[in-house]
């Protein structure tokens, strides 16, 4: 899941200072779980904007905002409210903001879009309201050799060949509250009698596979 938090309201308001009428887009997936772009938050945003003298021409929660076909469907259904508005405020991840912008352009309904959230990381919902980063989308998964614990993400330095000198009693030098990923990997591999995996030298990552922006076409 994409983990995000809402920007301070004053910052959002500053983005909208030249615009009177706003259409709000939320997202029914990650943004809803993170409580920054579900129906509840969208309605609260509508009230807050209206209390600041803005006109909210309408709102929609798209399921999900990162799927172009869903954005287009929802925009067609709200055509009048969107064509009459000055701008769109997207309460979703950074990907959602751009998906909304690009999809609207594809159906000739382009409007300035504004982000309402800061997108933080790809993570696990450990429990309601608590999220942990687990994957960095590195494009070359190492979890098989590291006992299902990602050092690229969970080691603060992304080291591939074992702990640095800052690992102390299973904790990280950056934050003593944080587990050292390599201490976890070591314990896991030891338990599974696979320490030989830790003894093999891991080559450096091939960053040529990670040149941004990445695209993928299925079946090609």
């Amino acid at each position: 899941m994409i983990i995000m938090e809402q920007k301070p309201f004053e910052e959002i308001l500053s983005f909208l200072k030249d615009e009177k009428s706003i259409f709000i887009v939320g997202c029914a997936q990650c943004a809803t779980v993170c409580k920054v772009g579900g129906e509840e938050e969208v309605k609260a945003m509508k009230d807050k904007l209206e209390s600041q003298g803005k006109k909210v021409s309408g709102w929609v929660v798209i399921d999900p905002a990162c799927q172009s076909v869903e954005v287009k469907k929802n925009f067609q259904a709200n055509k009048d409210k969107i064509t009459s508005t000055d701008a769109i405020l997207v309460m979703a991840c950074g990907n959602g903001v751009q998906s909304v912008k690009d999809s609207a352009e594809r159906i000739k309904m382009e409007k300035p879009v504004h982000p309402a959230c800061n997108t933080l990381f790809l993570g696990e919902v450990v429990r309601a309201g608590y999220f942990e980063e687990k994957c960095s989308l590195c494009g070359d998964c190492l979890l098989e050799v590291t006992g299902g614990i990602c050092p690229v993400t969970r080691c603060s330095k992304g080291l591939l060949n074992g702990p640095c000198g800052g690992s102390s009693e299973g904790k990280c030098e950056v934050d003593p509250e944080r587990d050292c990923a390599w201490a976890l990997i070591y314990e896991e591999l030891k338990k599974r009698r696979k320490l030989d995996r830790m003894k093999a030298i891991q080559p450096a990552k091939d960053h040529s596979k990670l040149i941004k922006p990445r695209t993928l076409t299925l079946g090609s």
Binding site: N161, G162, P163, G165, S167, S168, W182, Y186, K190, K199
Partner: peptide, 18 residues
Amino acid sequence: VVNPGADPIEPQIIKMEK
């Protein structure tokens, strides 16, 4: 470099060998 006081020590030694 190596940290002989690391706890646990085995991961340090594995890395030293590498």
